[in-house]
Design a protein around this nucleic acid. Sequence first.
DNA 1: TCTGGGGTCCTAGGACCC
DNA 2: TCTGGGGTCCTAGGACCC
Length: 362
Amino acid sequence: ASYESRRYGCRSAQPMVQALRLCPRAIVVPPRPDLYREASRAFHAILRGSSPLVESAGLDEAYVDLTGVGGGGAGGAVERAAIAGACDRIRSELGLPVSACVAGSRTTAKVGSDRAKPDGLIVVEAGGDAAFLAPVPVRELPMVGPRMAQELAASGVATIGELAALDRRWLQVRFGRVGAAVHDRARGRDPSPVRAQPRSARSVSREVTFGADVLDRDTLRRTLARHAERVGRDLRADGRRARTVTLKLRWGDFQTLTRSRTLERPTHATRALAAAGEELLDGVLAERGRRGVRLIGLAASNLVAEDLQLGFDAAAGPAARASQRAGARAATRGRPGAAPAPRGAPARGAGEEADGGSLPGE
DNA sequence: TCTGGGGTCCTAGGACCC
DNA sequence: TCTGGGGTCCTAGGACCC
């Protein structure tokens, strides 16, 4: 939604009917994903001109690590010049508005660039992150969504500064790990590094919302089969196989549920994905009866790389995996006479879990 | 905000194993 | 046989992000 249309209440993710009701004179432009991808490539390329350390955060957003670029000069003048130059190129070469923020942490940079919209540049002086964030409403801090903002408001916390002043343990008890993470970020501390190398996907999925609630089982099956085909194609193109298949359903009343199954052996075959999905669907329909379905989705997760999964053919199934684990443990202990670990043993986790289950980038 | 589609990560309980 | 602790995996759901 353009900034002009937003004045009438149009937003992203809004059904077209509703947008046109709010703004009848709006100009409707058909989406052109190829064009966006091309512009995105050019956008990232320009940023890489200011620093090699560029992390993409989607088609139209990126973090640039400028550490070392400025040489610690006063007021961030060199950093400002580097980013201002990149922004000018984006405007002149791509014809796109762009907003940016130079700051000491990526969280502050994110908050600042949102505040610089639609076409501005904000520079936060070195060491000034916490002071810059303090007056900003908590909802503008990444990781604070509608739910957390509401709970914080109930405790009288409206700004990021007030969040920063809270007791860390209280936040942790109330919100778990996210509580501690937002506390750090509210104070201008953000341990997550800028990663130039994108991590490989953890899951691949397709879903569709029907125009009208669907009761017909065949329609659901066919839709699921189409999802399976696309998910399978993506997996094969990526050289990966999935161990877990998840079905997602949303009923007419918007209530949403998921059902998942972990397969004996990982697959990227359309048929296997579809079969697992159908089985899950049959299970839900048997248990819940006939209800209108508004959305149906299929996801593949627990992904293993193609070249690492060969061993699974010889050693599939829970029992075999357990003995694999035992074998691997024995091998690690170096017990004399212990069976060598099967070839497939390192498959799970090798490369997949390299940076653990921590918060993004921590 | 009557609500798309594609993702990520966390949590919590239960099963199972040592 | 009973009890307990710790670890991992699986499943379901939820918050959040672009």
